[in-house]
C-alpha cells in the first residue's frame, strides 16, 4: 500500500483539493483578508497555521481515548492555544518585524475554524499519524489558496514580490490601490473560489 492509499495520505490529499478548507469548505477565511497583501507575511502565517493544525491534531488524537466528551472542546482549544502561542514566540524571535505586522492575526489562529474543524472531524476519531497528516494537509490546502492571492496582491498593490522590486517596474507597473485593501482580498478570494468551482464542475464534480 502506497503512501497515498494510507489513511493519512488520503486525508492529506483530500485537504489539499477536494476538501480544501478555503475554496471547498469556505472556512478559516478571515485571515485571508488580513494577511495576504504581502507574500512574506502570508508564507509565515501559513507556516504558523500548518504547524499549529498538524501538531494540535496529533496531540488531540493521542489524548482522544482519555478525553472526557463533556470537555473535549475545552481541551482542544487549550491544546491549540498552546501551539499557536509557541508559533507566535517563534515568529517574534526570528521575524520580529513581520510579527509586528501580523502578530494579532497569528494569535487569532486559535479561533480559526480550520483547526477546530479538523480536530473535531478527524483527530478526535483517528490515530495520531493520520491526524498529523490531516492537519498538515489542511494547513497546506489553506496555503495553496492564500499564497496565489498574496502573489497577485503584492505584485499589483506594491510592485514587489517577497519585498523585492519587480524588474523595471517604473516602465510598466501601475499601482492598484484596491489590491492593498481588504477589498482586494475579497475580489481575489471570490475569483479563486469561482475558478476552482468551475474546474471541479468541468471534472464532473459538485461545486462548493
Amino acid at each position: 500500500m502506497g503512501f497515498l492509499d494510507s489513511p493519512g495520505g488520503k486525508a492529506l490529499v483530500l485537504n489539499l483539493w477536494r476538501e480544501n478548507p478555503v475554496f471547498r469548505q469556505v472556512i478559516g477565511i478571515c485571515s485571508t483578508l488580513a494577511v495576504t497583501n504581502l507574500l512574506k507575511n502570508t508564507v509565515l502565517m501559513c507556516g504558523a497555521l500548518t504547524f499549529a493544525t498538524a501538531l494540535s491534531c496529533a496531540t488531540i488524537s493521542v489524548l482522544r481515548a482519555y478525553t472526557p466528551k463533556q470537555v473535549r472542546m475545552m481541551v482542544q482549544v487549550l491544546i491549540i492555544a498552546a501551539y499557536v502561542i509557541v508559533a507566535g514566540f517563534a515568529m517574534r524571535a526570528w521575524f520580529p518585524e513581520v510579527h509586528k505586522l501580523i502578530g494579532p492575526y497569528v494569535g487569532l489562529i486559535i479561533t480559526n475554524c480550520i483547526l477546530m474543524g479538523r480536530c473535531e472531524a478527524f483527530a478526535a476519531k483517528n490515530p495520531a499519524w493520520p491526524s498529523f497528516l490531516d492537519g498538515a494537509g489542511a494547513g497546506l490546502g489553506y496555503s495553496l489558496v492564500l499564497i496565489p492571492i498574496a502573489v497577485v496582491r503584492e505584485v499589483m498593490g506594491f510592485g514587489t514580490l517577497f519585498g523585492l522590486a519587480l524588474p523595471a517596474r517604473e516602465l510598466w507597473w501601475h499601482q492598484w490601490t484596491i489590491m492593498i485593501m481588504p477589498t482586494g482580498a475579497f475580489f481575489m478570494l471570490a475569483l479563486i473560489v469561482w475558478l476552482c468551482n468551475h474546474w471541479v464542475r468541468r471534472q464532473g464534480g459538485t461545486p462548493a
Binding site: L63, V71, A82
Partner: peptide, 20 residues
C-alpha cells in the same frame, strides 16, 4: 471512568498544567 466528575476535573487540571 472518563465520565466521572472527579476524572473530568482532574483531566482538565492535568492538561492545563502540562500545556501551561
Amino acid at each position: 471512568m472518563t465520565s466521572k466528575p472527579w476524572f473530568i476535573v482532574a483531566f482538565m487540571v492535568g492538561v492545563a498544567l502540562v500545556f501551561g
